[in-house]
Design a protein around this nucleic acid. Structure first.
Length: 194
DNA sequence: AGTGAGATGGCCT
DNA sequence: GGCCATCTCACTA
């Protein structure tokens, strides 16, 4: 049995965690009791109080962003555009409400009998819909398998195989919209299409 | 291929 | 009341 990544993995700085999460395995035990697994292939870093694109910019603390102020390793899930959920993993500490948005997954092949075709996990809203991840998964401890949502280790992706670009959908964030905080695996076919 | 609009609701000022 | 860390579908060509 592979263990879940320990909580202190998420205490590192947010860009480090973002890059390190590429290639790691996101796991989810769904309501039918089956475990879904997929490699993380695209993420974005949100750098807290100094990042205009981040929900905690300027130290904003609201009901929605409550989980952002938990210790690293918790989930932060919110509803966007009234119909899609987005999954984030909180980093650092409550003093630094930062997080990594999981933008795309590459499903790990399953036995043909169980495989669902055309699994759409190439976008933050799509992957949550496909895995049935909602607000009830907000604030979970992702270093514990018993949470039903966790991350397992996998070999690190070489820096040369990681592309960094400005983040998607944050044009309103002025100069922060240009920061190259979107990271994805070069040439991976499951990257979201902006 | 590329553009544009609509869905849809919680959150924030 | 306006704004979204999105996605899909319908339309033009």
């Amino acid at each position: 049995m592979t263990k879940a990544l320990p909580q202190d993995f998420y205490f590192q700085d947010t860009v480090t965690v973002s890059r390190a999460l590429l290639g790691k395995i996101l796991c989810h035990k769904n309501e039918d009791g089956e475990t879904l697994r997929a490699s993380i292939v695209e993420v974005e870093a949100y750098l807290g109080v100094k990042d205009k694109a981040c929900h905690t910019f300027g130290g904003r603390q609201t009901p929605r962003t409550r989980s952002m102020y938990l210790e690293g390793g918790h989930s932060y899930i919110y509803l966007i555009y009234g119909m899609y959920h987005c999954l984030n993993i909180v980093t650092r500490t409550s003093e630094h409400p930062e997080a990594v948005l999981i933008r795309a997954l590459e499903p790990i092949p399953r036995p043909a009998s169980l495989a669902k075709k055309n699994l759409k996990t190439n976008g933050p809203g799509k992957l949550c819909r496909e895995w049935n991840i909602t607000k009830k998964h907000d604030g979970l401890a992702l270093w514990k398998k018993q949470s039903g949502l966790w991350v397992e280790d996998a070999p690190a992706i070489p820096a040369a195989a990681i592309v960094s670009r400005p983040r998607i959908g944050v044009d309103y964030a002025a100069e922060a919209a240009l920061w190259p905080l979107r990271f994805y695996m070069k040439d991976n076919p499951f990257i979201s299409k902006p």
